[in-house]
Amino acid sequence: MKFHSPTSFAEAVVLAQNSEGVLRYLAGGTDVLVQMRAGIVTPDELIDLKKIPGVFDITRTAEGGWTIGVGVSGAQLGAHAELCADWPGVVDGMELVGSTQVQGRATLVGNLCNGSPAADSVPGMVAAGATVSITGPEGDRILAIEDIPAGPGRTNLTKGEMITAINLPPRGENGGDCYLRFIPRTEMDIAVVGCAVNLRLDGDTITEARVSLGAVAPTVLLVQDAADAIIGTTLDDEAVANLMAAASAACNPISDKRGTIEFRTDVAGVLAKRAAKFAYARAKGEVIKGTHL
């Protein structure tokens, strides 16, 4: 296995383009090393992106959004008070990935590019309307988060392409988000179902909403029907019932060692309800802390 530590994305792109055999990028490494250990992936070339200047930066954009470098760990996100205040659902999602130790290394981009439909950080980013900046041999482009995963373990990035940063939109006024997942234990499991809700209020009425579900389909879903169920409502009982029904209806899960089709479909609705209520409360200005809601 060849190990590369480029000091610019341009250099990384050339290395990636010229690579032979199995290529993996190394950001936090918390998926790649596990796959190497289990013999699932034996890379011929490994490109460490962490020597590239700026990859550990969390930057406020001119518009009031955020740019997050590819090396930024969950621990770093969680320690960033302003970012946590803006996008608690996004940060919570990342902080639910693995243990405290894994948090010390794991990154948003790694969690996204691992391509798992159960990735905890992805629904929150999808609901937030986040995008990724991509560079590659053909130049730069920007894609929505939900357009990156192509299926379990696969992405829509082409050979030589890599993500250079995550872009979160400005939070704006009267907005709130929340990510919840269901796992059998209280920690350390892969999500059996995950759900993120991001919404904005005008008074008590929801004016904008995005609802995203994880682990209920081959990729993380953005569920327009679920958002429509609560837009224009005050999250009253009927709206909640419609939200639950829409979330469950969007599910196309499998039965596996972690859960059944029935369980995932049911609990998707339950989590949508609970996440929407927390997001709504946050939009109302309530400070609700903690990843284990």
């Binding site: 090393l33 250990r37 621990a75 130790q101 894994v102 948090q103 290394r105 350390m188």
Partner: peptide
Amino acid sequence: TGDCGACSVTVDGTLISSCL
């Protein structure tokens, strides 16, 4: 595989699993 914590160390003050 980063699931047990027995290899915990800190790197520049950050807690990590040294197997990862």
